[in-house]
Design a protein around this nucleic acid. Sequence first.
DNA 1: TACGTTCTCTGAAACATTTCAAAGATAGCC
DNA 2: GGCTATCTTTGAAATGTTTCAGAGAACGTA
Lengths: 344, 344
Amino acid sequence: MLNGRTPSVKDVAAAAGVSLGTVSNVMNRPEVVSTRTRERVERAMADLGFVRNESARQLRAGTSRTLAYVMLDGTNPFFHDVAQGIELAAEDADLSLFICNSNSRSSREAVHLDRLLQQRVQGILITPVDPAAPHLDELTRRGVPMVIVDRVRGADSCCSVAVDDVLGGRIAVEHLAEQGHTRVAFIGGPDSIGQVRERLQGAREIWESLGRDPEDLVYLPTEAMTVAEGRSAGERLAGLPVRRRPTAAFCANDLLALGLLQQSIGAGLRVPDDLAIVGFDDIEFAAAAAVPLTSVRQPRQELGRAAAQLVLDEATNPDHRHQQLSFTPELVARASTVNRNRKI
Amino acid sequence: MLNGRTPSVKDVAAAAGVSLGTVSNVMNRPEVVSTRTRERVERAMADLGFVRNESARQLRAGTSRTLAYVMLDGTNPFFHDVAQGIELAAEDADLSLFICNSNSRSSREAVHLDRLLQQRVQGILITPVDPAAPHLDELTRRGVPMVIVDRVRGADSCCSVAVDDVLGGRIAVEHLAEQGHTRVAFIGGPDSIGQVRERLQGAREIWESLGRDPEDLVYLPTEAMTVAEGRSAGERLAGLPVRRRPTAAFCANDLLALGLLQQSIGAGLRVPDDLAIVGFDDIEFAAAAAVPLTSVRQPRQELGRAAAQLVLDEATNPDHRHQQLSFTPELVARASTVNRNRKI
DNA sequence: TACGTTCTCTGAAACATTTCAAAGATAGCC
DNA sequence: GGCTATCTTTGAAATGTTTCAGAGAACGTA
């Protein structure tokens, strides 16, 4: 009767001598079926090796059991930590998580979103290439719950979860100023990235409020936020005339900072004595660097978890209101800025 | 007529004044429909904002458009590179990739597999916690194409893709011997992990074939393959009496090596002069470490790509034969073992 | 005009599940 | 035994797509 097919509820029903509806009840409302019947059905399922067909379930029920996260850059561990936070929240809600990676390409992002729409996922979490991209509006227009992660978006068109990047920039540079540095580099880019702009803004704000000369906060733009770009920024830094050369650098993320650190040590500089370095994100490899990296910590997992909760609220709560959650970053001082052998 | 529902083929058909079948043809066999009609249908789709319901498609067509990868450890960038390779191959075949993370927990792995079975994915790629786990047999018994990545499995029960770990162990230790080291540590564990055993075996083989005393190859077992365990192994290493203390360490992966590197430098050792270090995997952060890490490179993306091709072959080719692909690892020598200021 | 070919299009059946009104069984009570 | 209330089970309808046999139209040819 089965001839090789994978068994369906119908087969289970036949084997257990009950109707389709009863088998469905055993799966979805076990409390309404008598213990005896339930056991017989469960037995039949096990014997036949029945596995529920999720497509059919979803088609009829109209609702999927998955969330999706479209991450921006798979090579940055930061996003994996965010994903891990989402995964934990999804697990609690008994949902699966679909992880996609746009690799900073807007076209790839659009392809992923289209497919997720086809899958009718319950909600989409995304760290977009460009928060203003029209394909994001498309989602909200369709009514798909969406939360922007680690970016913000104008108006209250959707929920978002981020860290106060201006504050992050302030505390990083404040820390460097406290360590006695009078000329500081800001490394990051391209400045189409909102975070870069805001971290720089925070850096400038605190710098000026400390009464320092704006000229002494040197902006070294990069093409991307990668280790390789960090190294190249290090070379440019080394190329500056000594009088103009900063004694400390604030990098817009940890990958840049690690690249800078590597290049500097390779060039014979002592960190932090010749060059102090602050990163951003506090990824695991920051602490594990040979000179452990001072960094502005974002609560990565917490970010993901909060985002997941917002998207679930939007999906299930009829009087959901969009929120823009902002977390507070925190400075983690390590050896790349603080020299233990020197009293400050 | 739509009252808020998301539009279906039926709505498109009505709007374009054609039948259901024609709309379906426009999507799946555009060549059989006349240009005029096709354009009218496409117009209607765009106007209504039609998005195909993947569940219904899959239910009827009986086949999904997704592959899945169950990775072992989301904190190790190695697996993300493998995933990236799979993703590229999937993209070529116009499939989506579902990435799950078992976090080295067998129970979590089983949950993911069960869900993937429900989704009727086309094939499963997996780096299993335990290649002998019965829930893997279950998959093959059900006829779901499966490929083991970075592990091997007895017999020819399924395809697998891996690197020759014994060889990897040999070339790592051979390199250290060439650099003049006469006492070497092997750091890795637990030895329930096949890789650890094989890399150690390779190390021992070459060591003995070079006529060295087995006593001089010191095995320092670890609890896990993490940065933290690498640091702790460093402490144990430092605790050995000087006469017994190795001057070089071969770590079973790069995370261990990075931890060891960090601990060693923190303790004032010079790398490689006081301690040379070789890692395994050649993750991106290996090259980016402050003392760039010598490592045994696995072709990570290639591994993923090959695995995806095997699983697709199994899914589509009726006379598919299981294969055990083995890639050749390659030593990448960097500053953690080779001192530029010293002639060898 | 009649006929065969080729090109388009149609509409009903099938996929595996959930849902729900209603039927049936069981038990308690007078 | 008859009645009601409660607990179980049933079976048909519905979900949105693909498939496919066959109906129609258009066209060239004899």
